[in-house]
Simulated assay, not measured.
Amino acid sequence: MKPVRYAILAAAALAATPSLAQGRLGLLPQGEYVCALPGVADGAAWNEVEGHGFSITGASSYTTDKGSGTYLLEGRRVTFTRGPLKGHKMMRVSSGLLQELDRDGKLGRLRCHRAGPVRD
């Protein structure tokens, strides 16, 4: 095989690798995010989960009741990279709505929505 063919095959393999093709880097809208689980038919539509909320405070930064950290937004995938939520992954469903991702990359039940501006 000619060297050009090897280069084309290598480029195609890299482009098909999911971990390298996540998307553009971005930022989440600043504000308070409240996290909840879906409710039941004969009760509340949503059940807020205490201790899971966070605030997006600036460029790739967040805070919780337990401290602060950083996150990375690649395409629609949010990965908390430092701080109390380190390792937690979410999918950006819309501009103000995130949904948790489990270890297999499947959407979980927990959803976090932007509830308003950051409170002092």
Rank of each mutant, 00 (worst) to 15 (best):
Y33Q: 09
Y33H: 11
R82W: 01
A115K: 01
A45I: 02
T63Q: 11
R5C: 12
L25R: 08
T64L: 06
L14D: 05
G26Y: 00
L28Q: 05
L110E: 13
Q22L: 07
G23I: 00
R109V: 04
G31Y: 08
D102P: 07
D120S: 14
H113M: 13
G43D: 11
E50T: 12
T17V: 04
L28W: 01
H113N: 14
L27H: 04
T70S: 10
G53C: 07
F54L: 08
Y62K: 05
T81C: 01
V34L: 15
V40K: 12
S60K: 07
T64K: 07
H52S: 14
I56K: 10
L27R: 06
G53T: 06
I56G: 14
Q30D: 14
S61R: 04
G39M: 08
C112F: 03
K86N: 15
S68Q: 09
T63S: 14
E100N: 12
E74F: 02
A10E: 10
R111E: 14
E74M: 12
G75Y: 03
A115E: 07
A13K: 00
A115Q: 03
G58I: 04
T17Y: 04
M91T: 10
A21S: 13
E32L: 13
A16N: 03
S19D: 12
A13V: 02
K66F: 15
Q22A: 05
A36I: 08
G26A: 02
A15K: 05
G39Y: 06
A115R: 01
C35V: 10
T63K: 07
G58Q: 04
K66M: 15
